[in-house]
C-alpha cells in the first residue's frame, strides 16, 4: 500500500512540476531561450503574493488574481528589454543574461528579505485538509487542486496556441521567424506575449509551491529551476503535455526514492533524468532527435 501511495503522491506533485516546466518549455519552443532565471521569477511571484497578503489581508486565492497578471506584465517587459537584446547576440548571451538575472534576484531577496523560509496561507483549510483513500492513503486537497490547475493551464495554453490569433502568431514565429516577419508579424511583440504567458504560469507555480512547501531565496535555483528542466527534458523538448508527463515521471521517481530511503528523494529524480538522457535523449514524447 505504501508503494501505491508513493505513486499517487508522485503523480499529484507532477502537476506542480508541470506548472514550473510549461513556461520554460514555451520559452524554449518559441524563442530558443533557456531561461536560467525561471525559478527565481517564480520565487519573486511567491514573495509578492506574501507581501500583498500581509499588507492587505487579502484572501490567498485572490492574491493569485493580482500576482499572475503582474508577473505576466513583468515577463513582457523583461522580454522586450534585456532578453530581446540578448537574443540578438546569440545563445551564450541569453544564458549569461538569465544567469545574471538569477544571481541578482536570488541575492537581492537574500539581502532584503533574509534567508528565512516563508510559506503562503499557513493554516488555511485548503493547505491543511486532506481526504483518505482506504486506510493508509492520505491525499492532500492542495495537491489535487494544484494538479487540476496544471491541467487547466495546459488546456488553456493548448487552446490559446491552436485556436486564437495570437496563438497562431506565436506558432508562426516559432516555426520560421523570418517568414512570419515578412508576413507582417512583429516577432518582438509575439515573443513578449509568449514571455508573459510563461511568467504567468510560473507565477502560479511559485505561489503553489509556497502553499505546498516553503519558499526561501535559494528555492528558485535549487528546486524550481532544476525540477522544471528535468521535467522538460524527460517529457521532450518543446512539448506542452510532455511537461506534465515529465513532471509526473519526476514526481513518481522522487516519491519512490523517498519510499526506499527518505534521503534519496531528490537523487532518485535526477537518476531518472540521467537514465532518460542515456536511453531516450529526445524525451519521452518527442519523435525526432533534438539538436
Amino acid at each position: 500500500m505504501a508503494w501505491v501511495n508513493a505513486v499517487i503522491q508522485g503523480v499529484l506533485t507532477g502537476g506542480l512540476y508541470a506548472l514550473f516546466a510549461c513556461g520554460l518549455s514555451l520559452l524554449f519552443g518559441v524563442m530558443k531561450v533557456v531561461n536560467l532565471a525561471h525559478g527565481d521569477l517564480a520565487v519573486i511571484a511567491g514573495y509578492v503574493a506574501i507581501g500583498i497578503i500581509t499588507a492587505t489581508h487579502m484572501p490567498v486565492l485572490w492574491s493569485v488574481v493580482v500576482v499572475v497578471p503582474v508577473m505576466a506584465v513583468l515577463g513582457y517587459v523583461l522580454q522586450r528589454t534585456v532578453i530581446q537584446s540578448s537574443l540578438n547576440r546569440g545563445v551564450l548571451t541569453t544564458l549569461i543574461v538569465t544567469l545574471g538575472l538569477s544571481m541578482v534576484i536570488e541575492n537581492g531577496l537574500l539581502q532584503f528579505f533574509s534567508a528565512d523560509t516563508r510559506g503562503i496561507g499557513a493554516g488555511m483549510s485548503l493547505v491543511t485538509s486532506s481526504f483518505s483513500l482506504g486506510s493508509q492513503i492520505q491525499i492532500a486537497w492542495l495537491l489535487v487542486v494544484i494538479f487540476a490547475v496544471a491541467v487547466v493551464v495546459l488546456l488553456g495554453l493548448q487552446y490559446f496556441l491552436s485556436g486564437s490569433s495570437y496563438g497562431r502568431l506565436i506558432r508562426a514565429v516559432a516555426d520560421d521567424q523570418e517568414a512570419a516577419q515578412l508576413s507582417g508579424a512583429d516577432y518582438r511583440h509575439v515573443f513578449g506575449i509568449a514571455a508573459a504567458l510563461a511568467l504567468g504560469t510560473v507565477a502560479l507555480g511559485g505561489i503553489a509551491y509556497g502553499m505546498y512547501s516553503d519558499l526561501d531565496p535559494t528555492t528558485g535555483t535549487d528546486t524550481i529551476l532544476l525540477f522544471a528542466f528535468v521535467a522538460v527534458v524527460i517529457g521532450g523538448l518543446g512539448s506542452l503535455w510532455g511537461t506534465l508527463l515529465g513532471g509526473i515521471v519526476l514526481g513518481v521517481a522522487q516519491q519512490i526514492g523517498a519510499q526506499i530511503n527518505i534521503s534519496d528523494e531528490l537523487l532518485a529524480g535526477y537518476l531518472v533524468f540521467l537514465a532518460v538522457l542515456v536511453l531516450r535523449p529526445q524525451g519521452l514524447t518527442s519523435r525526432r532527435a533534438q539538436t
Binding site: L36, V91, T94, F229, Y270, L274, P281, Q290
Partner: peptide
C-alpha cells in the same frame, strides 16, 4: 554530450546536483 547549447548547460547543472 547528447545535448546542445542551453540544454547542455542545464544537464551539467543537474549532473552537479546529482
Amino acid at each position: 554530450s547528447r545535448l546542445r547549447s542551453g540544454y547542455f548547460a542545464i544537464a551539467t547543472w543537474v549532473l552537479a546536483a546529482a
